[in-house]
Every structure is written in C-alpha cells, then in structure tokens.
Amino acid sequence: MVNFIEDFKFVFLEGNRWKFMLDGLKITIGVSIASVFVGLALGLILAIMKMTAVKKGKRTILSVLANTYIDIIRGTPSVLQLLIMYFVVFRSRMGVMAAIISFGMNSAAYVAENIRAGIMAVDNGQMEGGRSLGLSYGITMRYIIIPQAVKNILPALGNEFILLIKETSILGYIAIYDLTKAANYITSRTYKMFLPLIGAAVIYYILTKILSIGLAKFERRLRESD
C-alpha cells in the first residue's frame, strides 16, 4: 500500500504530470464534442440523400452517392482515415482540425444510418394520415414524422457520442496529446506502466459511464411522454 501511494505520487504529482492527463482529457472531450456536431450535420445531409430513394421508390443519384460514402467509411479503419486526413489532405498541419473533420466524417456515416432508421421506424400510417389530409410530403415530414423520429434517434446519437469518446484515443497517431497519448507519454517518462495506463482507462470509463447513465435517464423521460 505504501508502495502504491509512493508510486502514485511519483507518477502523477512529481513534475505536475497530472496536468498532462488533464490537458489530454480536455483534448479528448473537446475533439469528441466538436466531432459529434460535425457528424450530426453531415449525417443529417447523408440521411436526407438516402431518403430520396424512399420517396421515389427507387435509387437516386443522391442516394447512391450517400450509400457509397457510408460504405467506404464503414469499410475502412478509422485510424487510416485519420492518417489520410492529417497527412494527405491537411499536409501535416492543423492536427486538431483534421482530427475533428476525420472523426466527424466517420461518425456521419453511422449517424446517417441512425437517422434513417429512426425515421423509417415511424409507422407508415402516420405518413398516410398526413398525406390524406392534403399535407405535402415535406410538411408531413416536418410536423408529423420528424418529431416522432427524434425520440428514436436521440438515444442512438448519445451512443454515437460515447463511441466517439473512445474512438478519439487514436489521436496519438497524429501526435495530438489526448488522454491516451498523455498516459503513454507519462509511462515513457517514468518507466511505470501500470498507473498511467490504468488511470487513463479509469477516466475513460467514468466519462462514458456518466454519459450512459445520463442517456438512460433521458431515454426513460422520452418514453414517459409517450
């Protein structure tokens, strides 16, 4: 026990190394939040592109484009996407920006599927009910389908955010000091493996746990209003 406390002091307190962890955590959270918004905006556009096929009853140019994009994003490792975005597209500059765009583009593919599934899960009778009253497709979507779909989509988006937080642990690949990279850095400075790595893992776990508890509460509230 004494040993553990000594180690703890050495690893985190000496040289104010805990500040690396804190700064890393800020990067992790910051990049995650920014990426989730990029993913949401892009995902919404992709979902709308995909939905054009549902309205027409057959494939459209937009739906094919969206499907191809989603297919490629889901079929390639996100580490590679990040490396390509940073080294090829951004030419090794503006790492954080490249990361946000890369994670956002990655997330968008999954978000698009969530949004589409959430809209499709609304009973077709709702669309018919709206249309039979002389409302256009757009108005029916806006005032009848989307408000109901949001309840299906929001929990899925919360999950996407939790996934993103863990996904950002690959930021170290492009030399950004996120929580994982910071822990890794401390191991190289102290030659202690256990505490920095386990410490980082515990922080990730607490972070995602808080979010998933909040999400579960939120979902329950959504269901109560049904």
Binding site: D123, G125, E128, G129, S132, I144, P147, D226
Partner: peptide, 10 residues
C-alpha cells in the same frame, strides 16, 4: 378514415 386511426400521437 383508416383502420388503425393513424392519429398523430405527439
């Protein structure tokens, strides 16, 4: 008027 009413639940 539909068999399953199709009222808007929200």
């Amino acid at each position: 008027v539909f068999q399953h009413f199709n009222l808007f639940p929200h």
